[in-house]
Write a protein that binds this DNA or RNA. Structure first.
Length: 261
DNA sequence: ATGTCCTAACTATTAGGA
């Protein structure tokens, strides 16, 4: 069972690139973020031809999340009710595996915050409070939370290291909100498997950041213990941050994990 | 040229991204 997360930076602009990756990696379930696509033009037929059903929570121009799955799934939640005016940023489905096991899969596009001084930074922190409350209420023992969290968990996860401390993405306040999710019983699958590895999931398009290794690890797969225990491998799929022929990549790499469920 | 790049949108310049 291969579960993945990917901020695609525009679904319609990325559709051919996404096809390459789906065919190469064959994930069973994928959480997508930053669709920038209204629901009424979401290319359901396109993904159906590749074997995927899609559940979508999108909007015009910005944000937007979706779940692609080769397995049976049912919609459980679209959006955080307390945060409806901050964009389409969360979707949850219940997935049934070929073994007949059910688990919940949530994918999120957490707010960026812009700058420490901007009003959106305080809203980002408040959004995280709502996410933690949602998590407390979901009360499912097998639950994966994945997406673009827009927070650098520790110095190892950002190219600036400790020099980034207290700047946006690296603040104590933001990191505490990730810690709150850990205290709810979630584990960062990549960091758990590779405690000392420095791998990034996002690189700025500008200034040759990818080749200069100026990246951040801000895309995570977080899982409850029953899912953690069955995790066999976790990959940050860095090769898919590269250009493919004439196709432009997202600024994020996909991240996926293989679980025996 | 905020070293600067990519997307979407009232198609030309701006907002948003991280």
């Amino acid at each position: 069972m291969r579960l993945a997360t990917w901020n695609v930076n525009g679904l319609r602009a990325r559709i051919d690139y996404i096809d390459h990756w789906l065919k190469d990696r064959q994930p069973d379930v994928v959480g997508l973020q930053e669709l920038k696509t209204p629901d009424d033009v979401f290319p359901h037929d396109h993904f159906k031809a590749l074997g995927y059903e899609a559940l979508v929570h999108g909007q015009k121009s910005w944000n937007g999340v979706a779940i692609l799955a080769k397995l049976p799934m049912t919609l459980k939640q679209q959006g955080l009710q307390e945060q409806a005016d901050f964009g389409a940023r969360l979707i949850t489905a219940e997935i049934t595996t070929p073994k007949g096991n059910a688990f919940d899969f949530t994918t999120v596009y957490c707010p960026n915050g812009k700058t420490l001084e901007h009003a959106d930074f305080a809203r980002k922190l408040d959004w995280y409070k709502s996410l933690t409350r949602y998590w407390q209420q979901s009360a499912s023992t097998k639950h994966l939370l994945c997406g673009d969290f827009n927070i650098v968990p520790q110095a190892l996860d950002g190219w600036r290291g400790e020099a980034g401390d207290d700047s946006i993405f690296y603040t104590k306040a933001e990191r505490q909100h990730l810690q709150d999710l850990v205290e709810e019983g979630l584990t960062d699958l990549f960091r758990h498997r590779y405690p000392d590895a420095q791998e990034f999931s996002w690189w700025d398009y500008r200034g040759g950041a990818f080749h200069r290794k100026h990246g951040l690890r801000i895309d995570f797969l977080l899982a409850t213990d029953p899912l953690l225990e069955t995790t066999k491998e976790v990959i940050i799929d860095r090769d898919y941050r590269r250009k493919i022929e004439d196709l432009t990549p997202s600024d994020h790499a996909p991240v996926f994990a293989d679980l025996d469920i």
